[in-house]
């Protein structure tokens, strides 16, 4: 099923980080990539990225307390 480019109100904007951004993120927080919260590779919101295990998905959420916040999830096998 197609979701009209995932424009549903409940789904925040997802994007895939490229390698250099991913490295920068991991260095900033000094963590291993699998310490991030996870998202399954078959999640309906990211199937369009064709993401592989270990990729990092950036999520820009609308937040009631901060306006917008960035959240990161690492792709894992479902």
């Amino acid at each position: 099923m197609t979701l009209d480019g995932n424009k549903h109100l409940l789904i925040p904007k997802h994007s895939k980080l490229n390698e250099s951004d991913k490295k920068k993120l991991l260095e900033e927080y000094k963590i291993n990539v699998f310490s991030l919260p996870k998202i399954t590779s078959e999640d309906p919101a990211i199937v369009k990225f064709n993401a592989k295990v270990g990729d990092v998905i950036k999520i820009e959420r609308d937040s009631k307390t901060a306006g917008t916040t960035s959240y990161y999830r690492v792709v894992v096998e479902s």
Binding site: H8, L10, I11, H14, I39, T40, D43, P44, A45, R61
Partner: peptide, 8 residues
């Protein structure tokens, strides 16, 4: 809709 939608 996925995990982020579920969280919201």
């Amino acid at each position: 809709l996925g995990i982020e939608a579920a969280r919201q």
